[in-house]
Write a protein that binds this DNA or RNA. Sequence first.
DNA 1: CAGAATCCTTTACGATACTG
DNA 2: CAGTATCGTAAAGGATTCTG
Lengths: 117, 117
Amino acid sequence: MTDHQGLLADCPARLAFDLLAHTWDPVILWALRRGPVRPHQLVKHIGGISPKAMNQSLHRLRAAGLVQRLPRPGTPPHVDYTLTPLGRTLLTPLATLGTWAATHGNAVTTTQTSPTT
Amino acid sequence: MTDHQGLLADCPARLAFDLLAHTWDPVILWALRRGPVRPHQLVKHIGGISPKAMNQSLHRLRAAGLVQRLPRPGTPPHVDYTLTPLGRTLLTPLATLGTWAATHGNAVTTTQTSPTT
DNA sequence: CAGAATCCTTTACGATACTG
DNA sequence: CAGTATCGTAAAGGATTCTG
C-alpha cells in the first residue's frame, strides 16, 4: 500500500474523526469557543443533552487535551470549562464543516427525503 | 436563545457531523475521491472493515446523496461506487480535518498517553 | 462478487439517585 | 452545583451464512 494519502483504517487522520464522532463532542467544543463556560450553562445552552453525557464528553475532551477544567474555589462549587490552545486549533476545521453544512446540508436533506432514482 | 451561531442540539450544522459520525463513512468517502471503486477493493484498501459495515456505510452515503452506485452489466456481477457532485463538495472539509490531524494529531496522542497534570 | 439476513458484543446516551 | 454510579434502551459493527 503506497497510497496512504490519508484516511485508512489505521491512518492518523482517523484520529480527528474519532475525536468528533461522539454526538456531543463537537457541539461542546463549539459552545466553548467564546471562553469559559460552566457545565450547567452548557447543558441549558445546548439543549437536549443529559448531564451525564455532558460529563462523559468533557472527560474525553479533557483526556484529549482539547478542553481544560478550571475549578473556582468557594461554596457552592463553581467550575468553568474552556478550550486549551490545542482545542482552539480545532475550531477552524469545525467551522469548515459547519460552513459545508450551511451550504450543502439542504441538498442532503432533500436527497434523503426524495431519493433521486 | 439568540446565540444560534451554530452547533446546538438541533442546529443544521449538526448534520455534517452526524454524516461523518459513523466510523467508516469518512474513510469510504475519502477512498472514493479518485474515482469509481469496487466494494471489494474498498474493503481490501481500507483494511479492518467488515463487508457488512461497508455495505451499511455505502447505504447511508447513498441515501445522503454523497455516493452513487454504478452497476456494470455482466457476469460475474460488477459494481462501482463513486462520489456524486455533492459528495465531492465534502472532500474539502474532509481534507481540512485531515490536515488538522496531521498537524495536531500528535499532540492529542501525547496528551492522552501522558496526562499533563 | 454484490449484498442482504441473523446473531452477538460493545457502547453511547438518557433517567434517576446519590456523594462532596 | 459538580460529578459519579446504576439501570435500561438503542444502535454500531464484526462474524457468519445464504441468495442473485
